[in-house]
Write a protein that binds this DNA or RNA. Structure first.
Lengths: 186, 186
DNA sequence: GTCTATATCCGGATAGAC
DNA sequence: GTCTATCCGGATATAGAC
């Protein structure tokens, strides 16, 4: 595997475990399998490394969502979104973790960029809820709050889910879809 | 105000904004209004400072919950818990934030201690859900997952709630109680 | 592209005067 | 209790040989 890719994987893994500020370029180099100096052939500095990881993660997430065919029916669309979100996040726990834990370690400019990417993703969910509310098939007191609540609910799964745990990915998905559906009374 | 208290407030504020690892003892000293050396009259080292903040926060949270009279009726108890959790967390956004963001910066021993305190708190919610399910007044597919879901849902509020925002504390509380209630179909 | 070596700075923590 | 001064290790990033 090329060094650039190994570097990124090492950084994601270490940032997720110990946090951006607590991880040194020396540790990343060791995990990558090169000496420190060599890292700078693949990233301009540590901040750019973090930004690229987060920004690319959001791009990938958005691109993956675009591959999902969201049904016209709002309730079916919400189910598709829920299952997509859970599955995508379960497959990339480290990337997801740093994507919302390390936002504050971005420079203000980089933060604004990633934030706008995150808002674009949440807008997809908001749109589904808005249609569900308008069509009278969901009870949503406040679309924005319901959107934030559902995102928090679903993303929280990544903090404890382990494939070898008590419940399988499919079981967790079913139970969370059930809770999400009830939350909007669909 | 005594230095020890100023130190703790400075640390909470700085850790919440920039993260434990990214904050230096020199910054904390500046915010406290003393020189670096003086800090060590009030804490043995940086790790102890973090641990004390987190552990005391969990103690305070638990003590505050103990002051709340939880009704015998599970649905009313869930409402009381929900409103308590939202209110307590809204009043201490910084302390709450670091209490779940900085867990990984604790030494393993300190982590285990704080984790057990957190589990004791969540056990209170689990008990309510278990009673509601047993009594047939709540639909809960999996008590453990519902507990984690509700905690994630409610705690997520602290990431965006601002007293000067679109909705008042009371409005947010009502809307979130409505969503929580629906989530367990009560 | 990667290595070794290094410049430069900042980190936590301590010592000892006041 | 707080101050100034300092130890010493480790941080990011760069330079130049290969």
């Amino acid at each position: 595997m090329e060094t650039g890719q190994r570097l990124r994987r090492a950084a994601v893994s270490l940032f997720a475990r110990h946090g951006y500020a607590a991880v040194s370029m020396r540790q990343i180099a060791a995990e990558t399998g090169v000496q420190v100096g060599a890292l700078y052939n693949h990233t301009t500095d540590k901040q750019s490394l973090l930004f690229d990881l987060l920004s690319d993660h959001m791009d990938d997430l958005m691109a993956a969502l675009d591959q999902v065919v969201l049904p016209a029916d709002p309730v079916l669309a919400l189910e598709a979104f829920t299952r997509f979100h859970l599955r995508y996040h379960a497959e990339r726990p480290d990337a997801v973790f740093i994507a919302y834990m390390e936002l504050r370690n971005l420079t203000p400019e980089n933060f604004m960029q990633v934030e706008s990417q995150r808002r674009a993703y949440e807008a997809r969910l908001e749109e589904i809820l808005r249609r569900g509310k308008a069509g009278g098939v969901m009870h949503v007191a406040d679309v924005k709050l319901a959107c934030l609540a559902i995102i928090a609910l679903l993303t929280g799964v990544t903090t404890w889910f382990r494939p070898a745990g008590r419940l399988s990915q499919a079981e967790v998905e079913d139970i969370y879809w059930d809770m999400t559906r009830r939350l909007v009374d669909a």
